[in-house]
């Protein structure tokens, strides 16, 4: 376990030094979600939210509703981006040396996701927390629920990142996953619009993104004062997703290693 943690921390540090040298990157990573958030917020201004079909959305808390969506989204988006960035290890030849070492592949991928989750979303997180604090009167939070939901959501984001990282390692041609997973995740997970009002086919698509469940649980406990009893189905599904993601990641890592040893594609870029 000590060895595993060493590798996770070393990988996180390496990625931090590799990609977050220039402080401007934090600004750029914040700017785009911020603009997108503002666009969504002012789009809602055109509608009468008091007549909203969603019980817990009103004109008073729409800002917090969207902020939670964008904060969570920045977590999940950052891990997908981290996986995409990790594929550059193949080009620089360093992936070969990672595979040459006996280090746990899960620990390496986790370290990469961990670094990205916190570094890519830290400014958005701070901004969101400050804005929510400023609008705290619109919160209707269940503290116990929040304490339970938060770690579940962070673990889920991390494992989603590790899983996507593992998929990206399969071959140099997996970049298409980035296109498939990034934008659709924002659209179908209910970041801007609640999943509840989606048509059936879109609801079906939203089911495949863990972010959907994380957002639903987070919004329920922060805006609707929902206790654990009310959101138990969402929490159980989230825990199930965590277990499935972990298993899928371990299997993918095994398949990837077997595949690269068979095809030798670790040296192709």
């Amino acid at each position: 376990m000590k060895y595993f943690i060493k590798v996770v921390l070393a990988e996180s540090y390496k990625q931090h030094r590799n990609y977050f040298n220039n402080k401007m990157i934090y600004v750029s990573l914040f700017l785009w979600p911020l603009l997108s958030f503002l666009a969504s917020y002012y789009s809602y201004k055109a509608f009468d939210l008091e007549e909203s079909a969603i019980s817990y959305i009103n004109s008073g808390n729409i800002l917090v509703f969207l902020l939670i969506g964008y904060m969570a989204m920045s977590f999940f988006r950052s891990v997908v981006q981290s996986a995409w960035r990790f594929s550059s290890e193949r080009q620089s030849g360093t992936l070969e040396y990672i595979y040459l070492s006996p280090a746990s592949r899960l620990a390496v991928l986790m370290g990469n996701a961990l670094s990205s989750v916190f570094e890519s979303s830290v400014v958005m997180l701070v901004f969101g927390i400050l804005m929510i604090f400023y609008n705290r009167e619109s919160l209707h939070a269940n503290v116990v629920g929040l304490v339970v939901v938060m770690p579940i959501y962070v673990i889920m984001a991390l494992l989603w990142g590790v899983f996507i990282n593992a998929c990206f390692l399969y071959s140099r041609d997996t970049d298409f996953l980035f296109t498939i997973l990034e934008e659709p995740m924002e659209i179908f997970s209910g970041v801007k619009v609640p999943v509840m009002i989606f048509p059936g086919w879109a609801k079906l698509l939203s089911c495949i993104f863990p972010l959907t469940y994380a957002l639903e649980a987070l919004r329920q406990v922060t805006l609707n004062n929902s206790d654990l009893g009310t959101i138990k189905i969402t929490v159980l599904i989230s825990i199930l997703i965590i277990v499935v993601l972990l298993a899928a990641t371990l299997i993918t890592i095994h398949i990837v290693e077997k595949h690269v040893r068979k095809t030798g594609n670790i040296i192709l870029f």
Binding site: Y3, K6, V7, L9, A10, E11, Y13, K14, R17, N18, N21, S92, G93, T94, E96, Y97, I98, S101, P102, A103, V108
Partner: peptide, 24 residues
Amino acid sequence: GGERMIYWRLTAYENLWYYGQLYG
């Protein structure tokens, strides 16, 4: 041989430290 396979933005010490961690 060649200039790949090391992290250019990291220092020599950091490169060696990172690979050392991979070996526990």
